[in-house]
């Protein structure tokens, strides 16, 4: 992805942090970003690492008797 895109995304992020701070300074302004990042990583970990070892099967799994 081009730099422009990243800058655009960062601007949005900065805007949200600012807005959050302006709205309620007591809250951690990037709370949802961090939560989202961790959550996403957790999901990826669960689905791509844990699940791969346990429940992923070949596509013809059910056709083979």
């Amino acid at each position: 992805m081009k730099l422009v895109g990243w800058i655009f995304l960062f601007l949005i992020f900065a805007g949200t942090v600012a807005a959050q701070y302006w709205d309620d300074p007591a809250k951690f302004p990037a709370y949802y970003f961090v939560y989202g990042l961790l959550g996403c990583l957790l999901l990826l970990f669960v689905t791509k690492v844990v699940a791969k070892k346990s429940i992923m099967r070949k596509e013809d799994y059910y056709d083979r008797s």
């Binding site: 995304l9 992020f13 990042l37 990826l44």
Partner: peptide
């Protein structure tokens, strides 16, 4: 503000994580 911030930050973080992997 609260709703919009939440609705923007979550996908943003998701996108970043996705992009790296």
């Amino acid at each position: 503000v609260y709703q919009v911030v939440e609705a923007l930050q979550l996908p943003l973080a998701t996108f970043v994580a996705f992009w790296f992997f």
